[in-house]
């Protein structure tokens, strides 16, 4: 169930030299929720603070130390020219760059703008649209720079964040699950909301890691961890249709926090299966 991350991580040299590695936390287009997951590690926060030098984390402290940094945690997606340039600079200053959360790893809910009339939206939403400078798209960090590790979720799982930091500090392998949310759901002995209640659920195509949180509260999974290792989106769509969901409602379900990820996958799978 737990698996080695796809990207082997080269741990910062500073650890070998017995120094506390420096940690920076950066924000792009996002809600700050993933950064708060770090601050939410109440019991472990002091242990974290004791083992890393928190060099840049405006959400938590006004003290700022110039780079380079051993580890950068990056939250949010790229939505402006300014941010597209800023992430290049952060990459240059970071030995290890870890993206945290669905905005950073998949573009976030703000990627709903992609392929739509952004100027039209701006003119409706803002009194002075002429003040707004924005890109037509919201894109994941990995579209702009090399990313060493992605932690998914909206928000991320704080257990995964702590395991990442522990792996980093203690130089051991990090294992993150790549299987479906169903595996975690069954392990915690939650009754399947789709089979037993007829509730639409993206659990079977979504990557585990949250501990099957939503189904444990009788809610369907909304896919915030993005696609699992081998998601069969067309087959799930068929079943959601049998549960009474209209096509447009299935589209909405698949287009939330990982806006384009599921839809693109589905199209690829449909194309693969079409008779040539």
């Amino acid at each position: 169930m737990q698996h080695t991350s796809a990207t082997p991580i080269a741990w910062p040299e500073s650890i070998e030299h017995g120094q506390s590695p420096s940690l920076a936390v950066w924000k792009f287009a996002s809600c700050d929720g993933c950064q708060l997951s770090l601050l939410d590690c109440e019991d472990e926060l002091m242990a974290v603070a004791g083992r890393v030098a928190i060099s840049y984390f405006p959400e938590a402290t006004t003290a700022m130390v110039d780079g380079p940094y051993d580890v950068s945690l990056v939250e949010g997606s790229i939505t402006t020219e300014h941010d597209a340039a800023r992430i290049l600079d952060i990459r240059r200053q970071s030995r290890l760059l870890v993206t945290i959360g669905a905005c950073a790893t998949a573009g976030g809910i703000q990627a709903l703008r992609n392929g739509r009339d952004v100027d039209g939206f701006t003119s409706i939403v803002y009194a002075h649209p002429e003040y707004i400078t924005t890109l037509a798209t919201s894109t994941p960090i990995a579209d702009h720079v090399r990313v060493d590790l992605e932690l998914r979720g909206c928000p991320i799982d704080r257990g995964q964040l702590l395991q990442t930091l522990a792996a980093l500090l203690n130089r051991h392998a990090l294992r993150l699950p790549t299987t479906s949310v169903c595996i975690e759901c069954k392990a915690r002995q939650t009754s399947c909301v789709m089979v037993a209640h007829g509730t639409p659920c993206l659990g079977p195509v979504t990557q585990a890691g949250c501990g099957a949180l939503c189904p444990s509260f009788h809610r369907g999974c909304y896919g915030c961890f993005g696609p699992m290792e081998s998601p069969n989106v067309p087959a799930l769509r068929t079943q959601l249709g049998l549960l009474g969901l209209a096509g447009v409602d299935i589209d909405r379900l698949l287009n939330t926090f990982n806006t384009t990820a599921f839809a693109e996958l589905e199209q690829t799978q449909i194309d693969e299966r079409a008779p040539s």
Binding site: S180, C182, I183
Partner: peptide
């Protein structure tokens, strides 16, 4: 084509 590879069958 129908299997979700979700693992529910093996869990139950």
């Amino acid at each position: 084509e129908r299997c979700l590879t979700c693992g529910n069958c093996t869990a139950v």
